[in-house]
Amino acid sequence: MSFQWLTRRALVTRTLSLLGLGAIAGIKAGCDRSESCPPREVPQAFRYDITQLAADDGGLPHFQSIRSVQTGLIGAAALTAAPGGTLAVAHDQEVIVLDPVGDIVRRWSTDHRVLAVHVTDDQSVLIADTRHVHLHNPAGRRLESWMVGNERARLTGIAAAGDDLFVADAGNRTVSRYRGGDRVWQLEGFHVPSPYFDLAIGPDNLLWVAHTGRQRLEAYNHTADLIRSWGEAGFAITGFSGCCNPCHFALLSDGRFITAEKGLHRVKLHDADGKAIALVINASALGIDVNKPVGIAEQQNRVSPGPLVAGLGQDRVAVLHPRNGGLHILQAPDEVS
């Protein structure tokens, strides 16, 4: 009898033990396959984190924000200062003119995507699409067009001085000077890894070109001689980060520079010799998360992922970010005014 009890007890114990083990195994297996289980920890060594670098201001004074507005111009390709303190924006197939505080004054459409814009002193508007330059009157009526690029062309910058027209072509990695529709000269040999290749005319009448693959700005005279250059690669506030920076820049009337960088999404003020002297705006103020990967779709649509900049007089700067359409008007601090 006792033997039978022992056997039954042993049987029950073993059965319960097996059931328990089975349950534990089942729970473990279920946990491994359940969506509610916490994901495995990704080691820090696998993470690409540039938050601290983007926040570093190097102790430079900051510009003060005067106004920030949401323009809705997500995907804007170019921003430039226009006479009277206004701004012109190239956005998709439109040119939009904004007043000095960012309100839309007028807008007009074209039949092609606008990649670069320049407004002359008489308020005529020069715009570039992939291969052509078009001259419009201030109301937007097209007056003239020139084909300046071949099938490889990707025009990214345009500037005019007197009768001269200067065009930057990222596709062919060239800068060309035109007069009366004829090409006067063409500069070659630039290292342009991606379609960010800006240019501008300085107050000293030099042509400044952003040599983005070399992380520097170069000045040429009107006979295509390299006069000087400045800029170095580096993630510190004194350098230009990553490849293809500065992605955009503008010259102030006193010869100082405003430079914009993609990747770290920061805008800086440099003196006429290129020394960084103030932080205009950084990624957090622009509302950009530097660790959020750039949308590949943005690049495929050829949307500039870096801030667009324009100088409004000596002490005021406009910054438009194509990723969120935010326009910021900023005032220089007293230290650098």
Partner: peptide
Amino acid sequence: GCAKCVAGCAAFGNG
């Protein structure tokens, strides 16, 4: 397959 290089390339380069 950690994607660290992919993130660096996408943040600054051509992806």
